[in-house]
Design a protein around this nucleic acid. Structure first.
Lengths: 187, 187
DNA sequence: ACCTGAACACCGTTCAAGT
DNA sequence: ACCTGAACACCGTTCAAGT
């Protein structure tokens, strides 16, 4: 009796990946499910809530266990895991970032990061600031990478303007933030 | 003969600040200007281009000269200037971040940051990575602050959930990134 | 509980035609 | 050059009514 809701989310994920966030409308989704648009409002209060559920599902499907080791390595791994989870879906970062901004979901990465850091002995207040800083970086970086990718496929920009390896740049920025955290934590 | 375009941007800024980005529609803007919606397309190719012009105007109006001093202080000042420019308008960060993502404008902060750093002796490649990392942080931070503010005024959330001083948290995160950059640059 | 039918109040954009 | 009139192809959401 609860399986209908999950069907809607699964279908939304398919539409998202095939056509992008702009085409993920309530009407389009309903059509894909063979149902009237108004039927969707039996499962979700509004579109925002539905997108939050999609964001959570993106994170669940991309979840990876953290490796054992020093907390800095576990933080680095969690950030890579979040990046990969977002990159796995068209406009994935935008969906997750929006859900986070509206505080309707996507809380898992924040909780995971603060958990790893406080467990590693980082003072809670600093851990919170560091986690938010890391999340701004990760989501901002993937947002830019995906926006850039879709601009390229739209034909507005030929080839690669900033060029370069996105993963290497991500590693570099992440290392910078972790080094700064290390200074404040006595690494 | 060119003043009409600026009038449209000025009016858009007013609508944005009074009613938010969601209410800044082409039809609403046209109504406010006493013109038909189709007239706007004589001045801007589409809504995205208009919003990019609004983003640039937000940055121009919030521009501040950088202080003399070590480049680290100049970078810090530039980040605060960008934050204040975005905070000065309802949904300011979202407008600027979107324009940046679509590469339709809002390039000034990136150019300013990389300029300050390379002039200060930071290797160009590292300066680019640092500038993008800083921009992800600044815009992500303000985005969260403004989304949170509007959620509060919408009545969904009573008072302040994360509580705390946004400016202090901003300073803390910014200091962390700069410390990390210092490690890689031999500060 | 879950869905339909039908409506309400909107969107961005195009394009021939006017001045 | 700048704008109107009119249309096209859509949106999210609500709500009485059905089963």
């Amino acid at each position: 009796m609860r399986y209908r809701r999950d069907d809607v989310v699964a279908c939304a994920l398919r539409v998202l990946d095939d056509h992008g966030l702009a085409d993920l409308t309530m009407r389009r989704l309903a059509q894909e499910l063979g149902v009237r648009p108004s039927a969707l409002y039996h499962h979700f209060r509004d579109k925002q809530t539905l997108l939050a559920a999609v964001a959570d599902e993106i994170l669940v499907r991309g979840a990876r266990p953290l490796p054992d080791g020093p907390w800095e390595e576990r933080v680095r791994s969690a950030c890579h895991s979040l990046r990969d989870a977002c990159l796995a879906w068209t406009d994935g970062a935008e969906v997750v970032a929006t859900a986070r901004a509206f505080r309707l979901g996507a809380a898992a990465p924040y909780d995971e990061l603060t958990g790893v850091m406080t467990h590693g002995g980082v003072e809670p207040r600093l851990a919170g600031t560091a986690a938010r800083t890391l999340l701004h970086f990760v989501l901002g970086h993937v947002l830019e990478e995906q926006a850039h990718r879709q601009a390229g496929s739209a034909g507005a920009i030929a080839s690669d303007p900033t060029a370069g390896d996105h993963t290497a740049d991500f590693d570099s920025g992440l290392a910078m933030i972790l080094a700064g955290l290390g200074v404040r934590t006595g690494l």
